[in-house]
Amino acid sequence: MSVKRNLLEVKNVTKKFGSLIAVNNASLHISENEILGLLGPNGSGKSTMLHAICGRNLPTSGEITLFDQEITMKNPTARAAAGMAIKFQLARIYLDKTVRENILISLQAKESFFKQIRSATLKKHEEKIRELATEFQLIDYLHLPAKQLSHGQQQWLEISMAVAVNPVLLLLDEPTAGMSPAERKETAVLIKKASQHAGILIVEHDLDFIKELCDRISVMHYGEIVASGTPQEIESNPKVREVYLTRV
């Protein structure tokens, strides 16, 4: 039996905003090819936790390591270089750029300037762009500005941009927000496929979506992780039922 390496390790992270403790002494870990769901109602601190992991808001205390490399205080560029990619809650794509340009922006991010300047046309990476666009059903829209895409397509575009760079850790903040049930199903398939190459953290408030998809789930409430386990364990956990499920 192969032992899976620990990919992301978050140890005793606390984040304070003045006197407000948004995340209190929270720990979690993700192994290779594992999908972890971070579940919690609005204001439970799961977004703050995600921001601490991705480097948007540095934690007040605690330690975050990626492949045994400490990244707690590293900036987003360094984290991207270490193999982290993110999809934000509201799709942050380049609305005025075409779908092709958007994917290229992600693909070329780590190339040197001189390599970029030498490449006079935007035709580079064409094969990879077409491959991704086909996978995410965007192939017919490559030439369209991203602002003309539907809401669900914009989400897919951002996920495809994150997957494009073959990240080792993929952070997805509410990947299906505002999607139709059919689009959700399709998204689940795409995420499952991406997990063949990466560990994935999904932040959600909808248990139904992630219980099918995730290997493990951690539940946050008032800034603390109140339960962790398999989807079945989480669903039957009385504490989770009390603080979370009954309120939905």
């Binding site: 991705c54 900036n75 560029t77 991207a80 270089a81 990619a85 993110i86 750029k97 780590k110 941009m161």
Partner: peptide, 11 residues
């Protein structure tokens, strides 16, 4: 268009 986003891509 989005300095912060570009950093998250690794620019």
């Amino acid at each position: 268009d989005d300095e912060e986003r570009a950093e998250f891509f690794g620019y």
